[in-house]
Write a protein that binds this DNA or RNA. Sequence first.
DNA 1: TGAGCGTATGAGAGCGCTCCCAATCACGAA
DNA 2: TTCGTGATTGGGAGCGCTCTCATACGCTCA
Lengths: 333, 333
Amino acid sequence: MPTLEEVARHSGVSRSTVSRVINNDPHVSEETRQKVLQAIAELDYHPNAVARSLAAGHTQIIGLVIPTAVAMLFSDPYFPRLIQGVAAACNASDYSVMLWIGEPEYERRTIHRHLNSGLLDGIIVASAVRDDPVVSALHQSGLPFVMVGRPEDPTISYVDVDNVHGAREAVLHLLRQGYRRIATITGPLNTAAALDRLEGYRMALQSRGIAVDEALIAEGDFTEEGGALAMQQLLPHRPDALFCASDTMAQGAMRTIRAAGLRIPQEMAIVGYDDMPFAPNLEPPLTTVRQPIERMGQEAVALLLDLLAHPDDGPHHLVLPTELIIRASTARS
Amino acid sequence: MPTLEEVARHSGVSRSTVSRVINNDPHVSEETRQKVLQAIAELDYHPNAVARSLAAGHTQIIGLVIPTAVAMLFSDPYFPRLIQGVAAACNASDYSVMLWIGEPEYERRTIHRHLNSGLLDGIIVASAVRDDPVVSALHQSGLPFVMVGRPEDPTISYVDVDNVHGAREAVLHLLRQGYRRIATITGPLNTAAALDRLEGYRMALQSRGIAVDEALIAEGDFTEEGGALAMQQLLPHRPDALFCASDTMAQGAMRTIRAAGLRIPQEMAIVGYDDMPFAPNLEPPLTTVRQPIERMGQEAVALLLDLLAHPDDGPHHLVLPTELIIRASTARS
DNA sequence: TGAGCGTATGAGAGCGCTCCCAATCACGAA
DNA sequence: TTCGTGATTGGGAGCGCTCTCATACGCTCA
């Protein structure tokens, strides 16, 4: 593995000059630049990222933390898409992504060790639950970071989708279709997304003068099984429509509904959330709220890079719009 | 951020000694060790990973390359689970994971730049297609690497599942149930997994003296849509059973089958592959071949670390067993 | 012709750590 | 007492690069 030094010797210039051409410093004559470039090609030289980071004081690496419980990663295409978005944006900006999946047994010491190792220039935290220890550790470490999903603390930069609005539109659609006893299966209520969607549900009903019946609200956990279970609680209260805080839970709820002998959408309309790839293939195809997951990842990177460039700026908050995708599961025939 | 130097001053010993206690060198008196440990705690010192890497010549970082086309990441839980396995195993061994999602536009130069930057101690390549440029680049870079999924070149270390055997068992099950005109939807035939599963299909038929009808073989692309399309090709040839090289494609095929008015499994039995989370929830629940995806990730890390420790060992090949999960989609009633 | 200025280049001091080698010391053996 | 021995500790030379500063070399302009 050739070094800067060797390239310098080979092309008859100093280390500094080679460094300049590598870093595209304009203060190099065209002639010298060519000479150096040729030496680089001949020796097949590649700068050593580690040495470069040590000298420069930054690594061009950002961390992507996914502190969610292990189980969700398995079935939910949310994270792959988010990762995809983050990776794409990083590649485009010459950053690398260090993946860090928060295992439950990770305790404070390990977290700190990673955060303070100087390996990361910044961090993106995906979908933390409330009071996540990673977030507080991050906060006191002083490392720049942005969250995907609104945190409690407004001084933190984040990008999120407009969950309240998305949920409200979904429920309003149900209302417009003439449904009146609308139930909801929420996500785990220690997440901001679940809370916001529930809030949207309430707002929609209230805006039409319909009292919220707490018996029509069941808490799920974003899993298929959890959706099926929650639906069992809901069924005795005879709702005529359902707003689910995730497509995955909607899928589970549909199973329960069918098992109870009810027809969708004639006897029970359903709206999901996420517009997962399987949503159009369900029986019947699922009306749902699409959110720009991948774009969130990209915007999170953009925000973080901005934060790295201008550390003194206040926190940035970016809220992306959602889109209601209407399919057969809410078609009052 | 305090440095080694400061810890040394603060505890009244030399840099070397502090370095020793950090690295658990036994040649330090208990008394000194305590003194240093205390200074470390008081200053809240954390070693700088970058400086350490530069001096030590290795980074404790491994790369996880996913060169597959973007689309698959979206719908397929395969990668999340693999990532999960890799991350877990790395954490357990004090390594970090650098994620590298191969965008199509990544050309040779970029690949080389990453491989030769010295940032990575080793690499795990997930599911490369045949003649993937990343693999050849990796080969000539001299970086230790292992693949997930059997490569053509036997000198490369890999871990894989026994795809031939898994497919054979699946088709034999169909045969045992009395089905005779068994069709198959393969994966893209430029991947080893698809080829191996097709091979298992052929072997099963031949072992029962049944001639392979090429009209009953359709190539898919591991997507739901691809499965639906492939099934349309197959239908005119009147198969009575189907072996799908992935659950996702099976899902698509079921859609086509149902649209054609055929009942599953009475008029068309189906076996999938992967045992994805949704497989038991399909209508009817899908018989499928389960493979230990997460474990593959773990074993890949184990193999790689072994390779790092013993660079001169020959290539390791590890083939994990599959398991046939029998559900209603093959229940000849 | 020489002062003044801008541009191209080189020198050298780190960045924070590891690791080899030498120095020190205590202690038992000769 | 002297020397060897082994356990501790310190010194110092890098790892490969960046970056500030100083130097040198043209120019232009008076």
